[in-house]
Structures are given as C-alpha cells and as structure tokens.
Amino acid sequence: MSNIVLRRIKAFLEGEKLSTETEVRSGNRQRLWRSDFRPQVDDIYKKLGGQLTGGITEIEVPAYPIVFEGKVIVGNDELAYNRYAAVCLRAPFYSDIEGFNVEASLRHCRQFEVGCKKVGLIAGVWSNSLSNKHFGEASDPGDFFGNGSSGWKMLAFRNMLRDMLAKLEGYEVLHFSIYDQIMSGGKLLTVGELIKSPSGDHYVSFVRYLRRRLGLPAVAAEEPV
C-alpha cells in the first residue's frame, strides 16, 4: 500500500483496533458492464481517446483499497489529479456520490497537475502496453501536445470503474485527498502537510478529521503515536 494517505488511514484504524479489510478484490465486472452506468463508461472512454470500445470489458477493475463498515475508503495522492482525471470526474456518476465535492476535485486537477508530473513520468505510469493498446501510443514523458499519457488515462479510467462498481455493490465510497484542507494550530493546512510531519496539534487535527469523515465518535483529545 504505497499511497501515503491510505497508509495513514490504515494506521489510525489499526491503532483504534477497528476491523478493516485491505486490498479487497472488486466484484463481478459483468455487473458494471450491464448496469445503467455503462453509457457513462463508454462516453468517458471515448473522451479519453479510447480506441477499443468493444474491448472495455477486458480492463480490470482495481481492488478496493480499504473496506471499513460498509465503506470503500479511497486515498487520493498526487497521481489522482490531472487533466484525464478531470474528464472522469465530469461523469454524472460523481455528482451523485453523497459528500463528494466534485468542484473541489476538479480544481485540484487544474491546480496540482504539476504534482502528478513529479511522480507520474516514470515508465509504467506514464505508459504501458495495455494503456497504449486502449488509448494509443503515449507521447514522450511530459509531452501533452501529442497523445499525452496513456497510462494516466488508464489510471483515471480504472479508478472511475472501481468507484462505480463499489456503488453498485452497495458500498459507500469515501474519498480522502492529499489536498483536503484542515485547520490546525490556527493555520489552514493540507492533509499532505499534516501526514508528512505530524506534530502533536497536527496529529490531533488529522485524527479529528478522520473521525468526522468516518462517522466515528469524537473524543476530547488525541495524542500522537
């Protein structure tokens, strides 16, 4: 579990002795292909430059990162925010997820693509054989004037499929972003800032944020571990 947001959430839940499952295999993809979401899937695939409409069903749906009390917990790090993720976020599906701020996520895609570039230009992320097959041969790393990144397109598309299938299976989908903002010590800081160098006050702020988002009871104080 390389995603730092998910690692922090998992560590908190384990510290609280709360039962979770990690890397839960997603359900039957056929349910997604036959669902009312299918027109949206086809539309987004085409908007991303998809070339094999009939081959969408071969694309694997990612595992659910953390499942906790009927919730699929998704941690969005730098790779989650770029121009292709913005295409997926405009699917009507996301407007129907309770508590999911589509506009804030779209804003992150515009503002923080540079963060995605810092970690997303390596081989296998920028492009790979499967992503090139579906979205065309990628341009040179960092070049968006041509076809851009087939790998980023595939990552954004698969994340959308994961969220849709989770919803179909009756899960609540909770997104946590590295760019979410929390008031701590009189300053507005991002989750990314808090979890990279948590002080006592910052840890308390982050944990209170987690408790609120996860529907856990508030406590008077928290101490760093």
Rank of each mutant, 00 (worst) to 15 (best):
N3L: 08
R25H: 03
S26I: 02
G27M: 02
R31W: 02
S35W: 02
S35T: 08
D36M: 12
Q40I: 04
D42Y: 07
D43V: 10
D43F: 15
I44K: 13
Y45D: 02
K47Y: 03
G50M: 00
Q51C: 10
T53W: 02
I56T: 02
I56W: 05
E58Y: 10
E60M: 12
E60A: 15
Y64N: 06
I66S: 12
I66Q: 11
V67W: 04
E69T: 01
G70V: 07
K71E: 11
D77W: 14
L79W: 04
A80P: 01
Y81G: 07
Y81V: 01
R83P: 05
A85Y: 08
A86G: 05
Y94Q: 08
Y94W: 13
S95P: 02
E98A: 13
G99R: 12
N101C: 15
S105A: 14
R107D: 13
E113I: 04
V114E: 06
C116E: 11
L121P: 05
L121I: 12
A123Y: 09
W126S: 00
W126D: 03
S127R: 15
S127Q: 14
S129A: 14
S131T: 04
F135Y: 00
G136F: 11
A138S: 10
D140S: 14
D143P: 13
D143N: 15
N147M: 06
S149V: 04
G151N: 01
K153C: 06
K153E: 06
M154K: 11
A156Q: 08
F157A: 09
F157S: 01
R158E: 07
N159V: 04
L161S: 10
R162V: 03
R162P: 00
D163R: 15
M164Q: 02
L165A: 04
A166M: 11
G170F: 03
G170C: 01
G170T: 00
E172H: 10
E172Q: 15
V173P: 02
L174A: 09
S177E: 15
I178T: 07
S184W: 02
K187Q: 09
L188P: 06
L189H: 14
T190Y: 05
T190H: 02
V191S: 07
V191D: 04
V191R: 05
G192R: 10
L194K: 08
D201V: 13
D201L: 15
Y203M: 07
F206W: 13
V207N: 10
L214V: 12
A221E: 06
E223A: 13
P224F: 08
